[in-house]
């Protein structure tokens, strides 16, 4: 389980997370919804220790992330896949080597690495693209390589940062379907940051809406769809 307790984080004078508390249960996909700049991606980065809270506690499976030793943090990160907003693929490496990089850090044999990379690329429908470079891929393909890189490590958690932003509706639906299939087949706990309502309703078991740096509403997809809360309704309906 991932738990945020009273977490605050500021960048300069701007307080992005303000006493943010949320529990993310194991085995489900939780979507963090909210306007741009409400701290969704910042919250995600706290889970893997890319950012440290100014106040409050971030726990993953009972471990307090900012207090972990370097070795423990490396072990924790090995159990979490992270899919970045713009995929963050390494320009100088081929698709195969991008997916293989994390596996090679685990000192696996090259045959094992090759088998896992092939299986991961197969799962995202890019089995024959291993030799290409990121600059030769479309936006949707880059996102899929990002997902392949995350699932290759067989993580317990996958964090998706705006996985459908900038994609056309059909490609977005492909990515949504991939996230649902990944959870179903691999049993991973997902955390998805998005402001794409269609994607949120397609992949979520639970939805948490962030507003002004804290959780404003949380519930199942049906509960969020039916809520009367004016802030949530305005966001869902996209009213100015």
């Amino acid at each position: 389980m991932i738990r945020f307790t009273d977490v605050s984080k500021s960048f300069g004078a701007k307080r992005v997370l303000d006493h943010f508390s949320l529990e993310i249960p194991t085995g489900q996909t939780t979507v963090l919804l909210g306007y741009s700049g409400t701290g969704k991606s910042v919250a995600l980065k706290h889970i893997v220790g890319l950012l440290e809270p100014d106040e409050g506690i971030v726990e993953v499976d009972g471990q307090i992330v900012p207090e972990l030793s370097r070795d423990d943090l490396v072990r924790l990160r090995s159990s979490i896949g992270y899919v970045f907003q713009f995929a963050a693929l390494f320009d100088s490496l081929s698709v195969f080597d991008n997916v293989a990089l994390g596996l090679r850090q685990q000192r696996r044999s090259e045959a094992d690495v090759a088998a896992r990379v092939a299986a991961s690329l197969e799962r995202v429908g890019l089995a024959d693209q291993g030799d290409r470079f990121p600059s030769e891929l479309s936006g949707g393909m880059r996102k899929r390589v990002g997902i392949a890189r995350a699932i290759a490590l067989e993580p317990r958690y996958i964090l998706y940062d705006e996985p459908t932003t900038g994609l056309d509706p059909v490609t977005s639906a492909v990515i949504d379907e991939l996230m649902v299939r990944t959870k179903r087949d691999l049993g991973v706990t997902g955390v998805v940051v998005t402001h794409d309502m269609r994607s949120a309703f397609a992949v979520a078991d639970r939805i948490a809406m962030l507003y002004q740096g804290r959780v404003h509403a949380v519930g199942t997809v049906d509960e969020i769809r039916r809520t009367d809360d004016p802030v949530v309704r305005q966001f869902i309906e996209g009213r100015p």
Binding site: R77, Y82, A88
Partner: peptide
């Protein structure tokens, strides 16, 4: 700035 350094960190590199 393209988060490739963060990606390395999350891959435990």
């Amino acid at each position: 700035v393209t988060e490739q350094v963060d990606a390395l960190e999350t891959l435990a590199v």
